[in-house]
Design a protein around this nucleic acid. Structure first.
Lengths: 157, 157
DNA sequence: GCAATTACCCAGTAATTTGCTCGGGAAAGA
DNA sequence: TCTTTCCCGAGCAAATTACTGGGTAATTGC
């Protein structure tokens, strides 16, 4: 599945911002190069993100983008909604041709499911992702170090 | 967000099958009318679903489609993967230009996230959805009944 | 055997979305 | 004033979505 590539780009860019924006703003040119996304496309995405208050732009030299609020206040759902506008309407909604119940049940079930996915994505923040990533990174370093020790031992033996 | 409309159609159609396929096969024509999806488009989707063993077709009059296995053995991820082929590759994967670590970290984080979403969708089966829907339906009937009682009471008072 | 009914298959295609180029501003700092 | 950045909008190629229309193959009931 794809979960919409647009949303993927937006999440990736916001992650870049969360990682690199700790000391001063990050330029779109940087993100463009880091993530391999075209500059103009990023501009379009960030226009949407800005309009929802997820990022804050600073013009002029030394400018760039900040996160609009703390990374633990920005959920993945926020980001994806900003660029993708989560309009999940069923076909019959509001129409009169949905009285037999059966087909409405199907639609309700789908609505429930997409609601669940939404809640799931609302629970994950940028901060969560960064932290989990760091934890995993540390774990990896740990493992690498211990395997190096083992390697030395086996070499010695 | 959209999580790909193709997947939505497929899940909706499979739900229709789970609901109506208890006594005999369901024709694509029925699903087409119930869900408002074009017949030929359904055929395409079902070709993919069939190739993954999620549905089983029966030809001839009185024919149609069955679920390929029990509804509690079919996850939402199964369905979406069948029609959408979940190829979630990062841009730099395998290339040599990913040595600085920073950009790979972003990609790893995204990978982790999409992995989590996948696991989430793997945990939800068609059976779950139908059951939850029925439970909610029953709850609604309960409420309606009790509010009717209240209504009668207030009318009586 | 024949007609009807269904799944199955494939080629084409309009509409939409994606991801991008280009061309220009407007604000802010050197 | 010049450069650097954000900002804005028109246009556009490629891909994807959703559909139309042309079949063929199996199965059922007559």
């Amino acid at each position: 599945m794809r979960l919409s590539t647009k949303g993927r780009y937006a999440v990736t860019a916001m992650l870049d911002l969360a990682l690199n924006g700790t000391q001063g703003p990050v330029t779109l040119a940087d993100i463009s190069e880091n993530q391999g996304i075209s500059l103009s496309y990023l501009e379009q995405l960030f226009a949407a993100l800005r309009s929802k208050g997820l990022v804050r732009g600073v013009r002029g030299p030394g400018g760039g983008y900040y996160l609009g609020r703390d990374s633990d206040e920005i959920s993945i759902a926020d980001i994806i909604c900003a660029v993708d506008e989560w309009v999940e309407f069923t076909r019959c909604k509001g129409r009169q041709n949905c009285q037999d119940g059966q087909r409405c049940l199907t639609h309700n079930l789908w609505d429930d499911l997409s609601q669940q996915i939404f809640i799931f994505l609302t629970d994950i923040t940028l901060h969560d992702l960064v932290q989990r990533g760091e934890a995993r990174e540390a774990e990896r370093r740990e493992k690498k170090a211990s395997s190096q020790v083992v390697g030395l031992k086996t070499q010695a033996a």
